[in-house]
Design a protein around this nucleic acid. Sequence first.
DNA 1: ACCTGAACACCGTTCAAGT
DNA 2: ACCTGAACACCGTTCAAGT
Lengths: 219, 219
Amino acid sequence: MSTRMSKVNRDVIAREALAMLDEEGLDALSMRRLADRLGVGTMTLYGYVRSKDELLDAAVGAATEDYEPVPTDGGVRERLRAHVQAVRRMLERHPSLAQLRARQPIVQAPAFGMTERGMQILLDAGFPPDEAARLFRVLFVYQFGSALFGPDEPPPEQRRRVRAALLMLPEDAFPAVTSATEEIVASIGGREQFEFGLELILDAIEARAARYSAARSHQ
Amino acid sequence: MSTRMSKVNRDVIAREALAMLDEEGLDALSMRRLADRLGVGTMTLYGYVRSKDELLDAAVGAATEDYEPVPTDGGVRERLRAHVQAVRRMLERHPSLAQLRARQPIVQAPAFGMTERGMQILLDAGFPPDEAARLFRVLFVYQFGSALFGPDEPPPEQRRRVRAALLMLPEDAFPAVTSATEEIVASIGGREQFEFGLELILDAIEARAARYSAARSHQ
DNA sequence: ACCTGAACACCGTTCAAGT
DNA sequence: ACCTGAACACCGTTCAAGT
């Protein structure tokens, strides 16, 4: 068929690693189990990848190819919201991505597709490059932080654990927390909480953008 | 000396684990190496701790005792800023904390000391409990996300890796990113970036708080 | 009651050897 | 050129035994 007889190549390995990550999570991915899944000897993988870290890098690259760019019309707020939601869909499809990003910064070229879209929106809104870069970063930290610390569907068992811990706190030492137990439990994750925070940040960005476009139209 | 002859107890184990985490990082902490450090057999640890996960929980508990509460005067903005900086100092002293929090939610009682302070400030500002809880969570995600994705002192080598990756991108496919290379490199971490994002979020919170106090004074 | 070595079922990676 | 088993230096944890 192809010009190579090899059973695998770097791309096939990266994609299979990503599939394993999506199905079983980061802890379940080992070089040995991945090799088994691919029907090759463990050491074969090292012909395509220098180390497990490099394998994870490659898997991250494969994941970020899933990011679907977003329409380029509307105001800053609408465009940023659409962009963030697109990144969020990618993080939902590949729940290990945020964990991987925490291990090592992403330097794969495809990952910068997301950065490009986000930066473009902010530059279009009139922000100077330094402020655009900082705003982009705040959104990035919020998105990946949310994926890591408050996933879309926090397991009900997790909510129960937190509620149980809160209910055991003495009211006199923790008046604020104990007066808002259910509200705190509701805030530990989920789409509603994510969107609350997103709109909060968008409020602040929009306010700053207005200042810039005001400055521009007055000059 | 004490009523027990044991060489260790749960507290000593938790604190030594935390010291190891601070000095060598999460990957370097193993039950075997911790036991060696304490001069006991590996299996002795399992007399005080059901599993490594429980050990890490205990270490997190020990770390959060380091949070120093903060003066209760000033406006919402000043009080929140002081609170966030206190949490940040704790995260600086214990750089593994954010990573640990990503593995499992914290349900140790001492950790809720931070929640209590943050919630108190927001409730004092007039926010209803549900909004206070959601705002607190946004700040939490931002703080822990920043610690994980953009540490205070990003290793210069990390900045160099990102810069090198950016410089390799084709200008025509990545016009926004390539026009702001240095600004993006500057934004990947550090105190300045952290404070930029913090002030952005405080802008939005202050604007909402103003609405509440306006509503209160008009009624 | 408290401690612990041996053993089991895993890891990532080096090395030397196979075709 | 491409593949891989054996071996090394690690893991967390179970079990059975020591005092």
